[in-house]
Amino acid sequence: MNMQMTGLRAWLVQRVAAVYVGLFSLYLLIHFTTDAPGSYSEWRDWVGHPGIAVSWALFFIALLLHAWVGMRDVLLDYVHNTAVRLVALLGLALFLLAQGLWALTVLLGAGT
């Protein structure tokens, strides 16, 4: 098994991530229309709940993986110069990684 995320693996990851993001978004929509937190402390309690925090973490991982595959697809389609593509992919990876770390700090902060 190679660990490279190309071809079938990338495609599957994108699909599975899309399903999770879709289902979790639906859950958020239902939660916030039926049982919205009334105050900041209630909001923090809700996000700090281990089950919810893990679901949020999975949501961000799925979102970032989905974005990575999708944006990489766009770059593979349109950017044919190897050097430019490498820089663009690297920039994209750093950007998504930064977003992920930011989400992680927020989630860890909510848990304390």
Binding site: T6, G7, L8, A10, W11, L76, D77
Partner: peptide, 11 residues
């Protein structure tokens, strides 16, 4: 057909 190009450029 594996790999990023041969099949998986289809969107």
């Amino acid at each position: 057909l594996e790999g990023p190009y041969k099949l998986f450029r289809c969107h």
